[in-house]
Amino acid sequence: MGSKSKNEQGMTLIVKTITRLTVGLILLYGIYILSHGHVSPGGGFAGGVIIALSFIHLMLAYGKEVALKRLPKGVTSFFESMGAIIFLSIALLGFTGGYFFLNFISKGEPFRLFSAGIIPILNIAISLKVGAGLFAIFVALVLLKLFPPEDD
């Protein structure tokens, strides 16, 4: 909060290099956790958090301009609302089978990646909501202008 211009440019060369190498892996790991949520521990929330952390990592190392160029604020809030709406509409589609939240897609064989009906899709929706939401919270707290006090 205290330092001004140095924070804008990000951290040292070492941190930037390591970040460049690892940020893709973190994102990939998040996607792995998210897509295997229905067959192993993990799922939408954990995957979403890791995806958000990869962007937060980028922001910490390179400063907020670079991270916000990759993922602007408008896009974040769009994804957040879309995640919620996708989740709700899948739940509503269950009415085609007569019940709210009905698992209306064929459940397939257990322990396969393509199984469990609507649960992987719901995981994706949750991860959109959580990832975008967590990043938006972080951005909002970073960008909040305390001095001078004013509304955004």
Binding site: S81, A84, I85, L88, L92
Partner: peptide
Amino acid sequence: VVALGGAFIVS
């Protein structure tokens, strides 16, 4: 559902 849907569509 209606209330939640309304909230997200407004946002």
